[in-house]
Design a protein around this nucleic acid. Structure first.
Lengths: 169, 169
DNA sequence: GCCATCATGTAATTAGTTACATGATTAG
DNA sequence: CTAATCATGTAACTAATTACATGATGGC
């Protein structure tokens, strides 16, 4: 279960409300994991029961600010250093890019072009994130942003090559 | 639900038994999707009910060979060209690489080195796959193998840089 | 003859998605 | 004053994992 560890990581860097965590998931962990509010709220409650997260403040609109406890940080460290990673991936885009090569060139090109448009947007978003981090004087996660940028560049190049290939004999 | 489309793609390229599909999933779609036999067998039965897959032969040990039907191929094509991709990803390794930067340099390096060892193995496997495909006179999926090889190269470089960074002041 | 692997299935549990439900605050 | 967004929660359903269960075949 990566959800709790993702939440502990986010709360470690910055205490947040459940609602804010939904947004932070999209913004930073978006291309590794996804979680909706209906999963986040119950999980925060479980983390509190187990002493790994706590409510450290209350704000307007009945919002509560959560933070990781020492036990939560210890659990995240233990998970990273002592447990065997689950390598199984669930990436629909990857499945699409795989089976795509069964289509005839015209259909294939249309799909590839949509994919390229998406990756272009994604790359632009990441580039903005990088600019923002650098302007703010850095972040621990700067290296992860950099990895994302490099991966996107590889995908863009590959997609352009595959689009070109649909036009060959 | 990508499972059925992944299955249709695999069956399109080569009719197989459920048991063989488990192996083919690992071998080719492994870094995009994962499925175990307990999910594959019921899904094949559903695909048959819906006319998208059929049993085209029986072999020893009560094995049955499945193939995609015309309706199955049409459905795969429709899914690729007409439906909006679900971009949400579930990749525990990605979550780990993200939260890793909360650890102190020594712990972080230990985890990064394990990750590099894994990616090295992964890259070696993919390289074998490429060699085998080229020796066999090619495959439609050769481009996807190439993408994987490039991604692995980016990850190897990034991991080496991050390992070096744990040794800096 | 027996062990490894091939081969298929179902049941129980857990994780994740979608839908339902409601209230608070703020900007216009 | 009202619509958008902030904010939290639960219920129903679907997908996925883990565990249970069994039999066939081939190599040794």
């Amino acid at each position: 279960m990566s959800l709790r560890h993702a939440l502990l990581g986010l709360l470690w860097t910055k205490p947040s409300s459940g609602y804010e965590l939904v947004g932070r998931f999209e913004g930073s962990l978006g291309n590794a994991w996804h979680a909706s509010h209906s999963q986040i709220y119950p999980e925060l409650a479980r983390l509190r029961e187990e002493g790994m997260a706590e409510v450290v403040g209350e704000g307007p609109r009945n919002s509560r600010t959560w933070a990781a406890t020492d036990a939560g940080r210890a659990e995240l460290r233990r998970w990273l250093t002592e447990t065997e990673p689950n390598r199984s991936i669930r990436n629909e885009t990857g499945v699409r890019w795989f089976v795509l090569f069964l289509l005839d060139p015209d259909d294939r090109r249309a799909v590839l072009e949509r994919e390229l448009a998406y990756v272009d947007e994604e790359a632009a978003r990441l580039d903005e994130t990088r600019t923002r981090i650098d302007a703010d004087g850095g972040s621990a996660f700067r290296p992860v942003v950099d990895l994302g940028i490099r991966m996107d560049a590889v995908m863009q190049e590959w997609l352009r090559e595959q689009i070109d290939a649909t036009r060959e004999p």
